[in-house]
């Protein structure tokens, strides 16, 4: 591990920490991305304005990053289309069922010492390891 491989994740993580703090301070909300997406697409709540605005920010941000530093959004993994579709279905289904993902449980929940979020985070990390191990085993070890 060199300096950059710890520094940039730490910096990016701190920016995420600042982002969720701004959301809490102004709007009193948790920045849980799976919850924001699923509510935005499945409910007709008056609260959906800020949800769509957040998603707009995420997408505009992604577009600008792609223009300035496309390498930051490059997918060099070996995952094929079938794996990606199954992965998307599992992530969508699982995050709504489990009431959160990496942002809502992993960052916001753990920061306020929520036992539910800590257990959820340990669980999805453990099952992430199981999935990576299974793919590695089934595809003969390459990444």
């Amino acid at each position: 591990m060199d300096f950059a491989s710890a520094f940039y994740p730490l910096l990016g993580g701190a920016i995420i920490g600042i982002a969720v703090t701004v959301m809490l301070l102004f709007n009193g909300r948790v920045t849980g991305i799976s919850g924001i997406v699923s509510s935005a697409i499945s409910t007709r709540s008056a609260d959906n304005k800020w949800r769509w605005a957040f998603l707009g920010g995420l997408l505009v941000g992604g577009f600008v990053i792609h223009k300035l530093h496309p390498e930051l959004l490059s997918n060099l993994s070996n995952r094929n289309f079938t794996q990606i579709i199954v992965a998307g279905l599992l992530v969508g289904y699982g995050t709504v069922m489990g009431s959160g993902c990496t942002s809502g449980h992993g960052v916001c929940g753990i920061s306020r010492f929520s036992v539910r979020s800590l257990i959820a985070t340990i669980t999805f990390m453990l099952f992430g390891v199981i999935a990576v191990t299974a793919v590695r085993y089934l595809t003969g070890g390459s990444l």
């Binding site: 799976s34 699982g94 995050t95 990496t102 999805f124």
Partner: peptide
Amino acid sequence: LIGSMLFGLGWGLGGFCPGPGLTSFAS
């Protein structure tokens, strides 16, 4: 627990969780 298990399996299978997926979508 079951929801988090399914999410974890999908996360490891695809390498995306919801936020990064949406950010990369714009590329």
